[in-house]
Nucleic acid binder design. Structure first.
Length: 106
DNA sequence: ACTTTGACTTGCA
DNA sequence: ATGCAAGCCAAAG
């Protein structure tokens, strides 16, 4: 089981209307500061057939949509979240309402 | 094979 | 609060 697969599993487990951060995912797979791997994994996913993975539900620790630039358009990410009743505070997701902590992988 | 970069986070000044 | 550097693992040049 590669780190990428674990990341994919966790991101895929994010429930609708919820979001999580790179740091939490990284922590869940054991890589405390491996948050960048999450970004790479999602980037790989974005250019792969793993479209089942809601990469739009992954934000940075501030709730900002740092990955929005890698979508078809920079605002698709926010539109998808808003479509799931996700509240925004300025340009960031209201983590106090929608933060979802991924389960530990063991 | 080595260096640089990346959808990040944390620590120190 | 702002700015610079370190650390994590993987991919691209």
């Amino acid at each position: 089981m590669d780190l990428y697969d674990q990341i994919h599993n966790i991101v895929r487990a994010i429930p609708p209307g919820k979001v999580t951060t790179y740091g939490h995912i990284a922590a869940a797979i054991g890589a405390r500061s491996g948050a960048r791997l999450v970004g790479w994994a999602l980037n790989a996913v974005a250019h792969s057939d793993r479209l089942d993975i809601p990469c739009h539900r992954v934000v940075n620790r501030l709730g900002e949509l740092s990955g929005r630039m890698h979508f078809e358009t920079p605002f698709v990410m926010r539109e998808r979240l808003e479509a799931e009743d996700v509240r925004f505070v300025g340009d960031a997701v209201d983590l106090s309402r929608h933060l979802w902590i991924p389960p530990m992988q063991g």
